[in-house]
Design a protein around this nucleic acid. Structure first.
Length: 308
RNA sequence: CGCGGGGUAGAGCAGCUCGGUUAGCUCGUCGGGCUCAUAACCCGGAGGUCAGGAGGUUCAAAUCCCCUCCCCGCAA
């Protein structure tokens, strides 16, 4: 089956890799334009493009799919199936209709929950203990397609975004291969999503701000849901940003003010509304990541300091 | 030329603004002591080409000037 792959980040890369490893016939890879990234704003290709180049797959980077220019590419490659994973652009109807087997998408949630941009992070932040990947037959809406199959994964209490992301990448690859098999066998079934759905909005800076005046569980969920990227943060008394990579719920109890550093051992224990959160790994502004212990040894923080 | 922080013992930092005796702190580490015991406490030790340039200024530079290399945060 002639497959055209469309995707952008590492999550998509894992899926593309799975298809290739399985020996699927990937006739082309579509990714967005390279963007200026990092220090110095150097033009950087996305993970999917890097991988495609390594494998010698033809890469296409159309500015837009909206005008018919992309149609020429489609005709040239003549895919029988388009696989889309975290591509970032909406596919126009003419693209959806082109392939014989349609367009399928791997979305990192159990649809119709968490449609949209940041399903993994939102699920963790919300304290979910289970999520998954849905392979859907794409339609005009955003993640509104009929579901072909679902692969579930468990979210452990200690899992952060990266851990769940990696589990889902595996699950997604598995689901995708299964879906492709079903399609080629003509055995695919399509389950409509129903009317009750939720959206997983894109993560903004506001989402990253830690509110210690909340339940310690929520604080913890937010920290792990956003780690190791983009990372949640708080501020020191002098306004410096302190990003939190890892934390755990402390067994200490304390009377301090909200956001007050109440205890120091190898972690920084901070008072929340109904408990204490212990910060383990930190990224101070202008610095790299370090253990809380190191920050304490450098005399940068003390009991009584107020964070937030 | 996007903005900014930084490279000082194994780790995190101070010292540099206003150059000057043995480069300091919190840890770790090693040895000893106290203790029923300890990641606690006490005593002592080892460990540093102060990123690099047989650069510049100076009687004297970790500290001032110049060049190079490397690391990181933000923003995208």
């Amino acid at each position: 089956m002639r497959i055209l792959f469309m995707g952008t980040p590492d999550f998509a890369r894992a899926n593309l890799q799975a298809l290739c490893d399985k020996g699927m016939e990937v006739v082309g890879v579509v990714t967005p334009q390279d963007k200026p990234k990092g220090r110095g704003l150097t033009l950087t290709p996305c993970d999917v493009k890097k991988y495609a180049l390594e494998k010698g797959l033809p890469v296409y980077q159309p500015l837009t799919l909206k005008d018919g220019a992309f149609l020429d590419t489609l005709k040239e490659l003549d895919p029988e199936l388009i696989v889309v994973v975290a591509y970032g652009k909406i596919l126009p109807k003419y693209v959806l209709d082109y392939p014989k087997y349609g367009c399928i998408n791997g979305h990192a949630s159990i649809l119709p929950e968490y449609r949209g941009a940041a399903p993994i992070q939102r699920a963790i932040i919300d304290g979910k203990t289970e999520t998954g990947v849905s392979i859907q037959r794409m339609d005009i809406g955003i993640d509104t397609g009929d579901v072909i199959c679902v692969e579930k994964v468990t979210i452990e209490p200690s899992d952060d975004f990266e851990a769940v992301h990696d589990k889902l990448a595996v699950a997604s690859s598995k689901g995708l291969l299964k879906a492709v098999q079903l399609l080629s066998d003509g055995k695919a079934t399509y389950t409509p999503q129903g009317d009750e759905f939720t959206y997983a909005e894109k993560i903004t800076k506001d989402d990253c701000y830690i509110d210690f005046n909340g339940a310690v569980n929520d604080v913890h969920n937010r920290i792990r849901g956003l780690s190791p990227i983009p990372l949640s943060f708080t501020r020191t008394a002098d306004g410096k940003v302190l990003k939190i990579v890892k934390a755990h719920i402390s067994d200490k109890s304390a009377n301090g003010k909200i956001g007050e550093v109440v205890f120091l051992d190898s972690s920084i224990h901070v008072k929340c509304k109904d408990g204490v959160i212990a910060l383990d790994i930190i990224v101070p502004e202008g610095k790299g990541r370090m253990n809380a212990r190191d920050l304490i040894n450098g005399r940068k923080i003390a009991v009584g300091d107020i964070l937030g």
